[in-house]
Structure formats: C-alpha cells, structure tokens
Computed example of a mutant assay.
Amino acid sequence: MLQFFADQIDQMDLALDQLAMHDRNFDRFALMLIDNVVELTLHKYAQDRFYENDMWKRFSNPSTDPKLVAAALGQNFDSKIKLARIKKLIPPATCDSIQYLHTFRNTAYHRGLRHDGILHSLALFYFKSACTVLSSFSPLIWSSGSGDKISHRAAKYIGKIDFFMSRPTFDSAWKRLSEVAETMNDTMISDLHFDMRETIERTDSSLNFLEENEFGSPKGRASIIIDCQVWPFINSKAGKKYAEDNNITINNTGNYIEQIASSYPWPVKSDPLPSWMNRLDSLAREKDSDAALKKYCDFMKQTDEIRTHISEAESQLDAHIQNMIDAHRDK
C-alpha cells in the first residue's frame, strides 16, 4: 500500500505542474492524471471490500453486497462511484461531481473536445476532489516491500517514511496537496457561468437567424422551435412509428408534417431562452462549487438535443440561402 499511495502522490504532483502552466493542453493532461488517480483509488477501495467480504464469509453475511463489489471491480467507472456512495466513503455531492468530471475527461480524451474556458477550472476542482477521495480511503491492510521505490515527487511530501507512521504521513501529504491547490486561483463558478452564457447566446443568435430568414409569413419563435424538432423526428424510427400509430399517412408532405407538428408532444414547445436565462442567473448566485457544477452540467445535458436541432436548422437554412445565391449568380 505504501507504493500505491506514493505512486498516487507522484501523479498528483505531476498534475500540479501541468496546472501551473495554465495551458489547455497541459490542463487536459492534468485532468487525465487526476482522473486516473481517482479511478485507481476507487478500484483499490473496491478490492478491499472484496477481501473484507472474503475474510468474514465464514462467520457472517458479507458486509458489502457482493454484486455491488463485483460491479465496482469491473471496467465501469459509475459502478466504482456507486460503491463509494453507498458505503459513504465520500459525500454524495463529491460523488456527483466526480461523475461529471470523469465525463469531461472522457470527452476531452476520447472525443477530443477542448472545453476551452472551463478545462483549467474543472481540472483544478477535480484535483481537490481527488484529495478528498485519497484522504477518505483507509486501506484494509497497510503493507510495504523491499522493492518499494519512492519517487522524488512523492518524497517531497512523505520524506523517508516510517512504516508505523504511514497513515499520519499520508494524511499530511493529502492535506499538503490540497493546500497547494488552494493557492491556485479558483474561478470555476465564474468560468462555468461565462461558458453557459456563451452557449445560450449562440442559440439565441441561431434563432434570430432563423427568424430573420424565414420564407413566407412570419411564424415566431415557438413555431420555429417546433420546426427544428419536426424534421429530425419525421425521419427517425420513433417518428415513423408515431405516424403509423396515429394513422398519419404521407399522401401530402406538407400536410404530413403539419399533422405531426401539431399533434406530437414536443419536449420544447416555446422559446426556451427566458427559462435558460433564469438558470444562468441561478448559477451566477451559486456559492457552492459542487452545486454549481451540477447546475451547469444538468443544463448542458438537458438542453443539448434542442440546441443541436436549432444549430442544424440554422446550418441547413444558411446552406440553402447560399445555394440560392450561387444559382442566381450562375444565371
């Protein structure tokens, strides 16, 4: 266990160096290092619960649901967090934040999303959350071996460690790492607020474009928003099934679309911008970092589909206008 914890210190100290650079590429690397520390620690916690169950199985029922432990020992990150939540290793709000932050790590690494403007703040907050996980985890058995190798990064925090003082030494290390992180400028709430505001403004701009370039009589935003949802829906399996279940036939394309547009229970039926601005104001007033991250992530997830539909409608209309311009020039 001494080697395990020393290795985690090594990664955490390296992450601090990356964060100090305040560059998005280094921030992305820091986020991955921190996420790796959290996942390894949660996995080690799950292993301890497995050994604990195994030790006591002859004398009593397992202290932790074996299915829960088995799932946590698998590849799914959410299962590891679920075990930590149920066993109260860390506070529920921290569990929620870590799940959100792990998602950011995945999108930054696997999908290449840059998250400019918020990545540094997220990585710094994840670092603090990782310190909470490390300081909360007390291993079932402390152990060390002759082959243990303590890196210079870890030695900065634990020195020449005395095995019998392992727990207090590492507790001091987690505290020290957290204190270093606290010296860095924490702007996460304001960064999330700025990014959320830009997201809302982009959608507002797209809706303005759709309003200003409507063909025929003006519809207004409510109708435009329905239209943005109609076109993707009618070409989907769900749309075709809805038409079949409600005896809506494709005899006339315009009538077909109109019937679905007027009868289907659309997720968004009116201009969402006023309610979005209320959510933005709520985020601006938030003082708790965990709660702020939840508000931001919930908004981005809950509005993702309609924002995508509006953006795609804008792109299609813009392309149509450009084609009309090109055709006119060719005459």
Rank of each mutant, 00 (worst) to 15 (best):
I161H: 02
L113P: 09
D162P: 05
K128G: 14
A173M: 03
R153E: 02
S166R: 15
S172Y: 10
I118N: 05
R111Y: 07
S151L: 12
S138Q: 09
S129D: 06
A123T: 00
A154I: 15
G147P: 00
T132G: 04
A155Y: 10
R114C: 00
W142A: 04
Y157L: 08
A108Y: 11
F125W: 04
K128V: 07
L122M: 07
F164T: 12
I161L: 05
L113K: 14
S136D: 07
D116C: 07
F125D: 04
S146W: 12
S143L: 13
R111C: 09
I161D: 03
I161P: 06
I161E: 02
F163R: 11
A108V: 08
F163W: 06
A154E: 13
D162S: 08
D162R: 14
L124E: 01
S146C: 14
F127G: 03
I158M: 13
K156H: 07
S135E: 09
L122H: 15
L140N: 01
A108F: 06
W174D: 14
H152Q: 14
A155M: 12
H120F: 08
Y126H: 10
G145H: 03
H152G: 15
L124V: 02
F127V: 04
I118V: 11
F125E: 05
K156Y: 14
A108N: 06
L113H: 13
G147T: 04
G112K: 00
S121D: 11
L122G: 14
G159V: 05
W174P: 15
F127M: 06
G112Q: 01
R153S: 04
D171V: 14
A123H: 00
F170W: 10
I150H: 09
A130P: 03
H110S: 00
S121G: 12
R111N: 11
S166K: 12
D162W: 13
A155L: 09
G159S: 04
K160Q: 15
G112V: 00
R167C: 09
L113T: 06
K128I: 13
R114N: 02
L122S: 14
I150K: 03
C131W: 03
A130Y: 01
H152Y: 10
Y157G: 01
R111A: 10
S143V: 10
A123E: 00
A173G: 02
G117T: 00
F164N: 11
